[in-house]
Structures are given as C-alpha cells and as structure tokens.
C-alpha cells in the first residue's frame, strides 16, 4: 500500500479579471494542504490572487495521439473567420 499523497493540479489567477490558468501540479494530503503548498510553490513572487486545486485523477484529457482526427472537423472551415468575406474597403466599423 503506497503512502504517496495524491497529486493535485494547480490553477492560478494572476490578476483580478483574468482566467485561472494551469500552473503545474504537486502532491498534498488534502485540498487545504494543496492550496497552501500551491501558494508556497507557485506564488512566491505574488504571481496570483486566487488558486484553484483539482485532484489530478479528476482531470480527463483528450488523447494527443488522436489529435489529427479529433480536430479534423474544424480543418476545412475557413468561413468561420471574418477575413473569408469579401467586402469593399470603404465599408467602415465592421
């Protein structure tokens, strides 16, 4: 039986108004410890104003090996971009 503490994924909001971004991971016995350790590891230079922790086992990820087929549906849809539409230069504010 392993005594390894569970792994946690750490998300940091660097500034009010921005998203939480993935910063890295660490081991901790519970969520409270994970938050405190994340503070010590990832915000020593005031890099954050808010921390989220999620146990790594709760993260489900897409499979990089399948990226080609997985993202294929968006490959040929240039018409989702504004530059696809041909409009006169004198048209302003659009």
């Amino acid at each position: 039986m392993s005594n390894q503490w569970p792994l946690w994924e750490i998300f940091i909001r660097s500034k009010q108004g921005l998203d939480h971004k993935h910063a890295g991971s660490l081991h901790a016995a519970d969520a409270e410890m994970a938050i405190e350790n994340a503070r010590d590891v990832y915000t020593r230079r005031m890099e954050g104003v808010s921390i989220w922790v999620v146990e790594s086992k709760h993260i489900h990820a897409s499979n990089p090996d399948e990226a080609a087929s997985f993202y294929d549906p968006a490959n040929d849809k240039v018409y989702r971009h504004p530059t696809f539409y041909d409009l006169p230069d004198e048209l302003k504010h659009m």
Binding site: G17, D19, R80, P82, Y85, D86, L87, L91, M94
Partner: peptide
Amino acid sequence: YGPYARAMVRICKEESFHQRQGFEILL
C-alpha cells in the same frame, strides 16, 4: 462581473464574422 466579461470576450471574437457574412449577402 468576471465570468460575464470573459464570456463576452470569447463571444465578440467569434461574432465578428457574423456581421460580415450578413453584409456580404446584402451586397
């Protein structure tokens, strides 16, 4: 409100083609 503002940033970015395609139809 943060979550609203961030949702609107995504929406506005994606919305920009909507108006252009409409104008192109009328043109």
